[in-house]
C-alpha cells in the first residue's frame, strides 16, 4: 500500500519556516475563513428569514434585517405547525432507523469484506442496485405493499423504508473503509480463537467508529428531513414527523414562509446538537481503534 513512500526525496528541509510559507498559510486561512463564512451564513439567513413576514421575504433584499421581528412565527410553528406534537415522533423514528441502518449495514459489510463465501460479490451487487431507485417510482408499489401488510399509517412503514433505502449508501461508505482498515488485529483474534461475534462487536465495530459516526450523521440528516414517505404512508397526526409541520404552512393559495422558516429553525437545532456530538466521535473513535489490542 505504501509503495510510493520511498520515492519521496529529501528536497524541502524546512518548508514550514520560510517567509513564503507563512504568507501562504495566511492566505490559506483567509480562503478557509471565507469559505467558512459562506457555509455558516445560511444559518444566520434562516434565522432572519424566520422572523420576517411574507412581504419581507419576497421583494426586499435577502440581506435585509427583519423590520419588525415576527417572534410570533415561532409560536405559530409550535402550535399551528404542530412542532411540539411531531417532535418526539421525529426523534424516535430517526434514531431507530439510524441504528437499524448502521447496524445492519455493518453486519453486511463485515460479512462481505471479512468472511469467505462465494456469493459475496453478488450480494454486494444487490445492495448497490438499491442506490439507483428513484424514490418517486417506488412510491406506489411501496404503498400497496404496506397496505397488504396492514402497515399503512403505522410508524413501522417509515422506519423500515428509511432503513431499506439508506442501507445501500451506508454499506457503500462502510465498504470503502473496511477495505482500507488493516486486518491484522482481526486475523490475530481469529488465531486466538475468538468467535466471529466477538470479533465483530469487540474489534471491528469499535475500530470503525469514525465511519459509523459518519454514516450515522448522514443517515440522521436524511431521515430527519425526509417528507415524501411520511406524507404518503402516514395519515394520523399522532405519527407525523416534523417535516409534515412545514406542510401545515403551505396553503392552497398562500404560503406562510416566515412560519416555515421558524419551523426549519426549530427543527435544525436537534440535528445540530447531535451532529456536533457525533462528529466528535469521529475523532474519539479513531483514538480508541488505533490502540493495539
Amino acid at each position: 500500500m505504501t509503495k510510493s513512500n520511498s520515492s519521496l526525496k529529501t528536497k524541502n528541509k524546512s518548508y514550514n519556516n520560510s517567509l513564503g510559507n507563512r504568507i501562504g498559510l495566511g492566505l490559506l486561512y483567509l480562503v478557509l475563513g471565507a469559505v467558512a463564512l459562506f457555509q455558516i451564513y445560511p444559518l444566520v439567513w434562516l434565522f432572519f428569514f424566520s422572523l420576517k413576514t411574507n412581504a419581507e421575504v419576497f421583494g426586499t433584499s435577502p440581506f435585509a434585517l427583519p423590520k419588525d421581528p415576527q417572534w410570533g412565527n415561532y409560536l405559530k410553528a409550535w402550535v399551528d405547525g404542530g412542532v411540539g406534537a411531531y417532535f418526539f415522533n421525529s426523534v424516535w423514528v430517526t434514531v431507530t432507523a439510524v441504528i437499524l441502518t448502521v447496524l445492519f449495514a455493518s453486519f453486511v459489510t463485515f460479512a462481505i469484506t471479512r468472511m469467505d463465501w462465494k456469493l459475496n460479490k453478488l450480494v454486494l451487487g444487490l445492495f448497490m442496485v438499491g442506490l439507483m431507485v428513484p424514490i418517486h417510482s417506488a412510491l406506489i408499489p411501496l404503498f400497496s405493499f404496506f397496505l397488504d401488510l396492514n402497515l399503512i399509517d403505522h410508524p413501522l412503514s417509515i422506519i423500515l423504508t428509511y432503513t431499506a433505502y439508506n442501507l445501500p449508501i451506508t454499506i457503500m461508505i462502510l465498504l470503502g473503509f473496511y477495505y482500507t482498515l488493516p486486518r491484522e488485529v482481526e486475523e490475530a483474534a481469529v488465531m486466538d480463537g475468538c468467535s466471529v461475534h466477538r470479533i465483530f462487536f469487540q474489534i471491528t465495530l469499535p475500530m470503525t467508529m469514525p465511519v459509523i459516526s459518519t454514516t450515522a450523521i448522514i443517515n440522521m440528516i436524511y431521515n430527519w428531513n425526509e417528507f415524501v414517505f411520511v406524507n404518503t404512508f402516514i395519515s394520523s397526526d399522532k405519527y407525523k414527523t416534523l417535516t409534515v409541520g412545514i406542510q401545515n404552512f403551505i396553503g392552497q393559495y398562500l404560503t406562510d414562509w416566515g412560519a416555515i422558516g421558524a419551523t426549519l429553525m426549530i427543527s435544525i437545532i436537534p440535528v445540530l446538537i447531535a451532529f456536533f456530538i457525533l462528529s466528535n466521535r469521529i475523532v474519539d473513535g479513531i483514538a480508541a481503534g488505533s490502540v493495539k489490542g
Binding site: L139, I140, F143, S144, L147, I152, F227, V228, N231, T232, S235, S236, I246, Q247, N248, F249, I250, G251, Q252
Partner: peptide
C-alpha cells in the same frame, strides 16, 4: 380529517387511488 399541503395533497390522492384507498 387528514390535512395536507397543496402539492402533497395531489401526490397522496394519486397514490391512494392507485390502491383504491
Amino acid at each position: 380529517t387528514e390535512i395536507l399541503g397543496n402539492e402533497q395533497y395531489k401526490e397522496k390522492l394519486k397514490v391512494l387511488s392507485s390502491s383504491n384507498e
